[in-house]
Nucleic acid binder design. Structure first.
Lengths: 148, 148
DNA sequence: ATCTTACTGTAAGATATTTTACAGTAAAGA
DNA sequence: TCTTTACTGTAAAATATCTTACAGTAAGAT
């Protein structure tokens, strides 16, 4: 029997996967938010700090791609973090267009506490999952990231 | 030799995992954005439509949790979608506090096109990954979601 | 050298989202 | 019944983010 428009559900097998792919980081962000609220940082602020920590000397444009924000928005976030003495902009020898971003001692000082918070979250996230499965999971995520 | 503060990196094995968990849905959203731009919908709008399609009769508070927005923000998004005739609010028998959300014919009409766009994205996302691996991946995601 | 094009960050106004406060409603208990 | 507490959505003001336009800079072409 031919499919009629009434029978079509427009649901795909992969839809459930995509909802899950959205759901896990969403819950993760919510848990991290609760952990970082005690530092007086917004989500965008601590995400910016995390990326600058991970890649010191990042430019604002690069950070914008990481955070999925526009350059102008990142400029504003860095204004805040610089004013709060968490971050500094450094001029670059040989390229007067760009700023590179670096953590200030005040930010480095809260890293151990952030590290401890994050570890608690990780332990919860990965509870009951084998190291082998985690490795597989990571490999598949990397494949998908490369596919996009 | 004891660990000094200079040696500590405050980096965990799991950090890379979390960055990937964030990165894949981010890229996914970007690709979908490009696909849905032709419908004149913002990301928030089409995500709202997707959740209402998935769970007709959703309340605004429930949708707010799905979209990770505040109730007030969702109210505004629904105002827009209602004005554009994509969505309707229906009063609920026996509970005058809540609205339930339903797709209008205009929204249902664009589902096949959205479906086609989504399928292209899925095919790209999952290229080169076996059905078995996808099943494993989904199971692990579900575990993590339950853990959080 | 000069021109053209692209890159990087900022400014200003437009939009989107959140925060706070609130009105109406529902549910449970005294 | 009456009170209390929690739930649901909305309004208004405060923030955050985006869009557009732009100034300064870099790199390559001619």
């Amino acid at each position: 029997m031919a499919k009629t428009s009434d029978e079509q559900s427009y649901l795909s097998e992969a839809d459930g996967l995509v909802f899950l792919i959205e759901e896990v980081p969403r819950k993760l962000r919510r848990v991290f938010d609760a952990s970082t609220a005690k530092f007086g940082l917004t989500r965008t602020q601590w995400r910016a700090l995390a990326y600058i920590f991970r890649t010191p000397g990042l430019t604002q444009t690069e950070l914008a791609k990481c955070l999925e924000l526009e350059r102008a928005s990142v400029g504003h976030v860095i204004d805040q973090l610089e004013k709060a003495d968490y971050v500094e902009r450094r001029a670059v020898e040989g390229n007067r267009r760009v700023w590179t971003l670096h953590l200030r001692p005040k930010a480095i000082g809260i890293l151990p506490a952030l590290r401890a918070e994050a570890d608690v979250v990780y332990e919860r996230l990965l509870a009951g999952i084998s190291a082998n499965d985690i490795a597989t999971f990571k490999r598949l995520l990397a494949s998908m990231s490369a596919n996009l």
